[in-house]
Design a protein around this nucleic acid. Structure first.
Lengths: 227, 227
DNA sequence: GCACTTGATCGTACAGCGTACGAGTGAATC
DNA sequence: GATTCACTCGTACGCTGTACGATCAAGTGC
């Protein structure tokens, strides 16, 4: 069971194995597999990724993937974490800790927005290095800002939850133009049932970025250490 | 295409059709299908629901389901919304609007916690009546509490996102005892990489309810109308 | 040069999936 | 008695993830 390969790739390239492939096709590697999986996910969505398709794109046989990877699940986990790579310098070091947090979380959200399938992968137990790294960064920033120890974990989690929720919600509520028209019609029909929603145009408003920022401010108002 | 049945069930029961089933087996109905799907999801998880299995449990042939339901996707949508049924009276009418909101959102979260598979279904475009109803209730409460119009939608979304995120996060971070031990070990190993996380025991803390409540308070602090 | 191990690839096969299609059934209606 | 309607279901197709074992190239020990 499990892959035969140890977690790290062998050092020497060891000229490619049995494959009589198109001669100069590069050999399989975890990196190539993950990168191609992301490609496939981006273009064909979460149902468009199958092991056979993935292997095809790599010019390999389907079962060859399993030497590098335990299972399809693992491919998903790796794809998710790979998409969340980050450079610390980009998102920290401003004057204000609030600004730091906003940058970090907006960047996180932007990453996931670029790869809409990633939201579907969130409810899985995947703590890759990038996810943990971002958590650490957030945690450190809040801690240094002077948030009380008793509030620290709750603060981290609430920010975290907020970002997760925003990306998940966006996936389910961001409507295509057709959907929008249909929703408009349906909502008008149903304005008796949902008058407040209808009046505020909650479902039709599409300033997601603005709303995200505003909600973040609400949250930070509550988290900020009291004088 | 699509189901031949119109959205509402026929009025007369019209004694059961061709099926030579075990005689007094009740006939198929949308309600029975959805209820059984939820059962199956609860016991076997999201991958445990297949149309064949579902039909088996109902004492029917697999293809019979498709007269009542467009596709498996639809079953998911219906199952999700059915689990989110609510009674308005249970979650509103307290003195304080904040208390109302807390009750509503804690109830929402509890519903989803009872059916862990529901978190995986969130990133889909499913606006069932129960989801919309709860949104409406939240929206109305905030509006009546005097939240400024300009802040209203952002407030609703941020609360919404927070709850969504909390249920999704819980799914991915709530560890079994074995996991917990492994994480403990791994985290200690990696405490160089993630010192702040390690020190705050962020991943080991399991007072989810408390943290949820606390984060909600942070958010409500920010949303509350200023005097 | 030869046997053997190791790293990597792949073909075949299996069980299961969602569902298109069309046939079949009994009751209601004309 | 013929027709229509509401509903059920068997078969079949193309697809899925992956277990198993065969295969081959390069490296190692003699």
């Amino acid at each position: 069971m499990a892959a035969k390969r140890s977690s790290v790739a062998g050092k020497r390239p060891r000229r490619t194995g049995a494959s009589p492939r198109s001669a100069q096709e590069p050999p399989l590697s975890l990196e190539r597999i993950v990168a191609t999986a992301v490609e496939l996910l981006d273009t064909h969505g979460i149902d468009g990724l199958s092991m056979r398709r993935l292997a095809d794109r790599l010019g390999a046989g389907a079962m060859s993937l399993y030497w590098h990877v335990d299972s399809k699940e693992k491919v998903f986990d790796l794809a998710l974490d790979s998409v969340l790579a980050y450079r610390e310098s980009q998102t920290a070091g401003f004057q204000d800790w609030r600004e730091d947090v906003v940058h970090m979380l907006e960047d996180w959200r932007a990453c996931m927005q670029r790869h809409p399938w990633s939201a579907s992968l969130l409810p899985r137990r995947a703590l890759g290095p990038n996810i943990l790294g971002r958590l650490e960064q957030l945690s450190k920033t809040l801690s240094e800002a002077g948030v009380a120890d008793a509030d620290l974990n709750a603060g981290i989690w609430s920010l975290w939850n907020y970002v997760m929720g925003a990306t998940v919600t966006r996936g389910s509520f961001d409507l295509s133009d057709d959907d929008r028209a249909a929703a408009q019609r349906r909502l008008t029909d149903l304005s008796r049932l949902y008058p407040t929603i209808e009046r505020s145009r909650l479902l039709l408003d599409d300033d997601w970025d603005g709303a995200f920022r505003k909600g973040l401010d609400f949250l930070l108002d509550g988290i900020a250490p009291r004088p």
